[in-house]
């Protein structure tokens, strides 16, 4: 069975820290950072990057379109 790895890039300044991507991630990859961006939001980031399968669920539900997603078959 082909293994899939993914990665997400969050536009840190565009993120409003709503947490919907964290909830949508089936692999518990994402989390809200303890740090804040310049607008004071706890932005989303990959806390557990190895688990990402690039399913795009986080990007789909993101209201601010600040997630870009990459996926590769190994």
């Amino acid at each position: 069975m082909a293994k899939v790895r993914g990665a997400v890039v969050v536009d840190k300044e565009g993120c409003k820290g709503c947490g919907l991507c964290v909830e949508a991630c089936p692999q518990d990859v994402l989390s809200l950072n303890k740090e804040v961006n310049s607008r004071g939001y706890n932005y989303s980031y990959m806390e557990n990057p190895e688990a990402c399968i690039g399913c795009s669920n986080c990007g789909m539900v993101c209201p601010d379109t600040c997630i870009t997603i990459y996926r590769v078959r190994i």
Partner: peptide, 24 residues
């Protein structure tokens, strides 16, 4: 490897909507 990105028709303006708003 890109599988998901912002549409080219979306302008690079941060939306005024509250965090988590469905409008976005």
């Amino acid at each position: 490897n890109l599988v998901y990105e912002k549409s080219k028709l979306q302008l690079n303006t941060i939306m005024h909507y509250c965090p988590g708003c469905s409008n976005g």
